[in-house]
Amino acid sequence: MKKNLTYSEAILEGFKYLLDNYPEVFVIGQGLWSPWYVGNSMKDLDKLYGKERIIDTPVSENAVTGAAVGASLCGSKPIVVHPRMDFLLYAMDPIINQAAKWSYMFGGQSNPQLTVRSIVNRGGEQGAQHSQLLHSLFAHIPGLRVVMPFSVKDARDLLISSVLCKDPVIYIDDRWLYDQVDTISDVEIKDLEDQSPKKIIDGNEITIIASGFSTKLAKNAIDKLSIKNKNSIELFDLRVISPIKYDSIVKSILKTKRFMVVDGGWKTCGLASEIISSIVERIDPSSLLSKPVNVSLKECPAPSSGLLEENYYLSENNLVDLINRELENNN
């Protein structure tokens, strides 16, 4: 049965599905007993499933995350919630030193099956320590899978796939996507390992690759292009940013011969740079009609001043200009 849901409601549905069907799932993190902490994406879970399975915690990111790693080794499927990605930095050791390496260090005999749900919450003059999108940092680490849903359906279904995946998964959702609405079908259980980038717009002139909120930006920018240019862009939503399956993207670029990567993180050692290099390694670079375009965040911390914020975050209009320039350059 099809349903109209917002992105945040879809996440809530994902939680309910997991909690209904898997008694070994529990959720732990800050703000889970508060109606305002994580938007409506976890509304009333504590009332529906009880405070033993929906655990609000002290301000102890490191121990809470480490505890989830431990529980996952002993038969549970925990979901750790960090209401802001910035707070997660206290938990880097259990994620990067422990969870990411556990299977490898012990010869594949044991697997930390935990999901770290990390929410990106930016803008509104919150400043340098309340604005970060650190997906590239995690994508750098072998052993972690990193999921960044853009679509309403993925918000729900990839949460479920993440929790059912036997590896540690960083699932990153973005508050700037919460109000998106879509009509989606019933839960589809998908193996996370099989997930690949999805083409969401067809076109012939430029391939654009994005993920999470950046996909939305790119999609909106394409909508704003002139009629003449509208059909020129082929847009891919990555969905899973590590590991990435490149086949469909490479095929598209062999057709368009131009590509642009849009990413909400910083450029240096960032996701966009990684994708450009991975693609260039897979094709004959001389077949490209122009240089790949890297559209990433300005290389500075998030400012607190609203005036500077306007200049800091990518905007639809920026993107429209960049796309038009690229199209003009090459026609």
Partner: peptide, 27 residues
Amino acid sequence: LSKGYGGSMHLVDMDVGFMGSVPIVAG
């Protein structure tokens, strides 16, 4: 106090010995 870069959660005034405030808890 922070030349407009900080806002309420990032304050500094070394003239009075205040070295900085940040919103990461226990930071």
